[in-house]
Design a binder for these strands. Structure first.
Lengths: 365, 365
DNA sequence: TACCCCACGGAAAACGTTTACACTAGGCAT
DNA sequence: ATGCCTAGTGTAAACGTTTTCCGTGGGGTA
């Protein structure tokens, strides 16, 4: 025998493990394991002795050991672009609540839009043996996905990722919400509408932009390439984009942003330039983060439900974990819809007789 | 023999584990382990064979197994109050970057201010065998801390927690920053200053409030209990607090908030009430989240450095992990300082000749 | 009374690592 | 030539669980 369990060392307190519980309850470790895993065939007398010992010792099972032998970590990965963009914490919160309700915990990865960091995150997910991963960021490399496939770990993309199998992509209906936004502006009399996209290396940014252009067209409006600016989904990108527009010889009267942080950046730039929202510019955001209700003035925006996103992502993952259930392959899209607040109004220099602005939509999630 | 490693099953792909690498590299698993852990005594020839096999198989070690045997998870816990309050994601981001730089990963827990959730978080930290925990929220129960102690897991409180041993508390110098704020307002001519605290069940909220009162006194100003309102560190709490103040017969001319989200809530309430900042009310926040620079108008606030917080917390934890290093027990406090932007100005109905407001402080982190 | 079956508990293998210890060569000094 | 030391590798124990398989005892049936 090379190494032996150290003999009863009176100086160090005894380790609290399954063996300790077993000996205190005067049963075998197998019975302890069965009890705490709620296997129904345990004698109630022994079970109560076990529970007594568990609470007496304040015992928690070791997750590592448990995962090692069972091959299931009960951990779900969530990879997002940037944790400091308030949209993602909201998503994370929903994701966590739903995961916990389903008996899982979550491991968060934030890529900060860097490919390198993305790789580190994916690697971490792999190393920690997550049971599934939801990915809401751009630019994951194929070899990483292959490794997920090799380890039989299901993944789901939130946002289109066309090169992936269908069952691993959760489509968001960008068009519906943006169309409502364009219509809303058109009804108010806007004819010149700009769009601030996210970083165009990102597929979802491209989709939102494409959705905007398509909506514009079906509303019968013309796109002006000068008013299509690439942002970065963050405050500073929004501010910079607005400054670029203000430097242009002709301005749009309304601007749609591909996320709320960008819109808040625009609001700030307009404030700095002494221009007023919605009197000088109408603004529409995207996401409907909590903060959108509190900007000055409150932001009209397209709501995408974090809860729906999280639920669908987790259910997708979980359904693929247990092949017994029929995967059902529902191809429905995540819905989006316009929430009208106060950053949209009549276009500048217009005195047409137009319908009153509807009141602020009450927030209900 | 009860269970045997399944015989070469041609249908399932071979598991990629340390044994696979070992056999491909024609060495023992011990050599593989030593190689990937950079033990210096490995023959370079064998090592290169191992690395070749590793990259060929795209092998990642199993963290669970690794943690199980070594007893170290290389995981640091971080428990925060509420992930949707933007301050915390900023802290999380810093914490993660520093942890990664030190060779650790992080596990995030968000308590949502609920004792029950706090317990679940702590339990999770225990179960996942974190090597240390940083806690920035209120109301952790003693028995949980005892369990950390029993498992020899160091913990550190960010925020005063007087009943804990000194080396496990990172003190924040609330007074310094708030004092600057009060002075700043006093110089502008404000005599009537209100304060919106966090939930007073929280020790840190009490500290900030106590710091404010003490600063008021040393500036020679009187506190009005009607202007001391309890908020919830969130947007709606700020809005509600401001509405309470506006319902009062006499108003303060300036209000200090115990965090930025509260201040943004106040700004919103003032906007709704058609009052102007800083013309009608001066406002000061606390934390200096990224967003503070982008509010309308940009928020004057007390900066607390997330990076400093994170660095100190992690170094504290890590120093206690290796008892060889002298713990050094540095009792310095986390510094805070005022960042003057545009929500502070002369008090209402005042036409004294006072110094110009300084320009916006450029943001540098 | 004899037999069988069922319910339940315990012993022990297995999960994928790290690491203590044993062992083998080879180099060097005597 | 012999002995000793060192460098480097391999074997196997150990980590704390889950889970399989077997044994035992009790109750029901013929």
């Amino acid at each position: 025998m090379k190494r032996t369990r150290k003999p009863n060392d009176v100086t160090t307190p005894p380790k609290i493990d399954i063996r300790g519980v077993a000996s205190l309850a005067r049963v075998s470790i197998a019975t302890v394991s069965r009890t705490i895993n709620h296997v129904p065939t345990v004698d109630p007398v022994l079970a109560s002795r076990v529970w007594k010992a568990v609470s007496e010792l304040n015992y928690f099972p070791n997750t590592q050991a448990r995962a090692l032998v069972s091959g299931k970590s009960r951990l779900l990965g969530l990879v997002v672009s940037e944790i400091t963009n308030p949209f993602f914490p909201e998503l994370i919160q929903e994701f966590e609540q739903i995961a916990v309700a389903r008996g899982y915990e979550i491991l968060i990865g934030s890529t900060n839009y860097e490919t390198k960091t993305m790789e580190v995150c994916a690697r971490r997910m792999l190393e920690r043996q997550v049971d599934g991963v939801a990915i809401m960021t751009f630019g994951i490399e194929d070899f990483l996905l292959d490794r997920f496939t090799a380890d039989n770990i299901p993944y789901v993309f939130i946002d289109p990722a066309p090169s992936r199998p269908l069952n691993s992509v959760l489509a968001v209906d960008y068009r519906a919400g943006i169309y409502e936004g364009v219509q809303h502006l058109a009804v108010l009399g806007h004819r010149n509408i700009g769009f601030i996209s996210g970083p165009l290396t990102r597929r979802s940014a491209q989709s939102r932009k494409a959705a905007f252009l398509s909506c514009l067209q079906s509303t019968g409006l013309k796109a002006n390439p000068e008013w299509l600016i690439e942002g970065n989904h963050a405050l500073d990108g929004g501010r910079d984009a607005m400054q670029k527009i203000l430097a242009l010889p002709t301005w749009p009267t309304a601007i749609i942003c591909s996320n709320d942080m960008t819109a808040i950046g625009l609001q700030h730039a307009l404030f700095e330039a002494n221009l007023r929202v919605p009197d000088d510019f109408s603004l529409i955001g995207f996401d409907d983060i909590h903060l959108a209700e509190y900007t000055i003035p409150p932001l009209t925006t397209v709501r995408m439900s974090c809860r729906e996103l999280a639920t669908r992502a987790i259910d997708n993952l979980l359904s693929r974990l247990k092949p017994l259930d029929n995967p059902a392959e529902s191809a429905t899209k995540i819905t989006t819809r316009l929430i009208v607040r106060q950053t949209t109004g009549l276009p500048r220099n217009t005195l047409q007789d137009l319908p009153q602005m509807p009141a602020t939509t009450p927030r209900k999630r």
